[in-house]
Design a protein around this nucleic acid. Structure first.
Length: 222
DNA sequence: CGCCAGGCCGTGT
DNA sequence: ACACGGCATGGC
């Protein structure tokens, strides 16, 4: 299957470029419809100002937060959303992402989705990459891979594509699923970014994503 | 200069 | 329920 080939070809990425779970979460907010290079700038601003902590984000004014995240766009919405998250953590989890991670995956997802600025992809990215829970992340890249190969109709919804992607890992032990979801999404993003340089240009490329750039080896455990 | 980026939300049908 | 436009900024 395509999934196994991609995983075998690109290998483990041990992905999401961040040092701390909180940095993952902030990056997940900032990267919404935004180029990652722009997100890096905002994260750098936050780090330089010592704001990349729960306490830092708690104490900074929303206005100042907007200025720091300006490079990644939507600064008014995103600053408000990040502030709302911190307030939520303070209110329900003692300001600790770790305590949120102790909730069952379903409960944590439901709580995250109730927050402003958190939709299904952001929620699943937080669950998977910050909280270590097995949530399949469906982004624009995966949607295009799936629909372009005719695996699902173009009008498929998030949950449909997510179910299909998860089904590729049904044979996994539950304890290993988070790790495989992690690598799978990482690979999808790598392919999406590297193939044809820009994703949009792949629309006219029938072979887009058909073949791994690196020759596939033997089937992986996934 | 115009299009795009690892979405989400409010509004109108 | 679902399509559709707006949101902000920087890169190419």
């Amino acid at each position: 299957m395509l999934y196994e080939r991609l995983l075998a070809a690109y290998g483990p990425q041990q992905w999401w470029p961040a040092k701390t779970p909180l940095e993952v979460v902030v990056g997940a907010y900032l990267t919404q419809n935004t180029a990652w290079t722009s997100v890096e700038r905002s994260l750098q601003n936050l780090e330089s100002s010592g704001i990349l902590t729960v306490d830092g984000l708690r104490k900074i004014t929303e206005e100042d937060l907007r200025t720091l995240i300006r490079p990644s766009g939507y600064m008014i919405r995103k600053a408000a959303a990040i502030k709302a998250l911190i307030a939520f953590l303070d209110c329900a989890y003692g300001g600790s992402l770790q305590q949120l991670a102790e909730e069952s995956p379903g409960t944590a997802r439901e709580r995250l989705l109730a927050l402003p600025g958190v939709g299904p992809e952001t929620a699943d990215a937080i669950l998977l990459y910050a909280l270590g829970q097995p949530a399949m992340v469906v982004d624009e890249y995966l949607r295009r891979v799936v629909t372009r190969h005719g695996l699902m109709p173009p009008e498929s919804k998030y949950s449909q594509i997510q179910a299909l992607a998860e089904s590729a890992f049904n044979a996994d032990l539950p304890a290993t699923r988070a790790q495989h979801y992690n690598e799978f999404h990482a690979v999808i993003v790598q392919v999406g970014k590297s193939h044809c340089g820009r994703v949009a240009q792949c629309e006219s490329c029938p072979l887009a994503f058909d073949l791994p750039v690196t020759p596939p080896r033997s089937q992986s455990a996934a």
